[in-house]
């Protein structure tokens, strides 16, 4: 689905990603955790072709969709129009009906301008817009940022459901507890390098990760 090998990305002389390798396999739900400025957004922008790698390889198979950090909805357009544009690449697949079945919370909002919604509602629309592309892999950048725990739990529930139906997910999170909880495997990115990887349970048990990201005493 996603295979990143030895990826190096530079902004001028600054190296944002340094020989990063990671993999998301068919139907797998993988977390990428790390502090601010670790290079997570750089990785996203490279996956989606907005940045060009200086070295290394990004291979993707199947359809990729992104729920970007900060949600980036089309503020003046209605929720329904935002959803429709999620399927921009697929002229025949722009019927929004199925999404309202998957995300019933959106039904009462469908005619509202996206810019006027609360953060949680916007995140739901962003998720719906990404699902409109009927992706094989969903990349979610900072889903929980700034949202109330209850809202995050609802979103996480939707993610589990989609994952159960076979959707592969790359979850990029600062909230390591949430990410490790949702995903079976995880990578830890620090200063542009993958410093740890493995099954979530193992990582959560390792002293360094627990201390740095889960707020536990080592």
């Amino acid at each position: 689905m996603i295979e990143v090998e030895g990826l190096t990305v530079r902004y001028g002389v600054a190296t944002a990603l340094d020989e990063v390798s990671l993999e998301v396999r068919d139907g797998e739900m993988v977390a990428l955790i790390g502090p601010n400025g670790a290079g997570k957004s750089t990785l996203v922008n490279t996956l989606f072709g907005i940045l060009r790698p200086a070295a290394g390889r990004v291979t993707t198979t199947g359809r990729l969709a992104l729920v970007p950090e900060g949600r980036h909805l089309f503020a003046p357009l209605t929720v329904d129009d935002n959803l429709r544009l999620g399927a921009w690449r697929d002229r025949k697949g722009r019927d929004t009906g199925p999404i309202y079945e998957l995300l019933p919370e959106l039904v009462p909002l469908r005619k509202r301008p996206a810019g006027r919604l609360s953060g949680g509602q916007q995140q739901m629309v962003a998720l719906g817009r990404a699902l409109m592309a009927r992706p094989d892999v969903l990349v979610i950048d900072e889903m929980s940022l700034g949202l109330a725990p209850l809202v995050v739990e609802t979103l996480a529930g939707h993610l589990r459901d989609r994952h159960a139906e076979g959707l592969a997910v790359l979850l990029i999170e600062q909230n390591a507890r949430l990410a490790l909880d949702l995903c079976s495997r995880a990578y830890v990115l620090e200063a542009g390098r993958v410093v740890a990887e493995g099954p979530s349970a193992e990582l959560a048990g390792s002293a360094g990760v627990a201390a740095a990201y889960l707020g536990l005493e080592a």
């Binding site: 989606f48 970007p68 980036h72 503020a75 357009l77 544009l85 921009w88 592309a133």
Partner: peptide, 18 residues
């Protein structure tokens, strides 16, 4: 809608493939 979307948020427009 795609024109309006591009005007509102070019980054998001690129993401959805516009």
């Amino acid at each position: 809608r795609a024109l309006t979307a591009t005007a509102a948020d070019p980054y998001a427009a690129r993401i959805v493939g516009i």
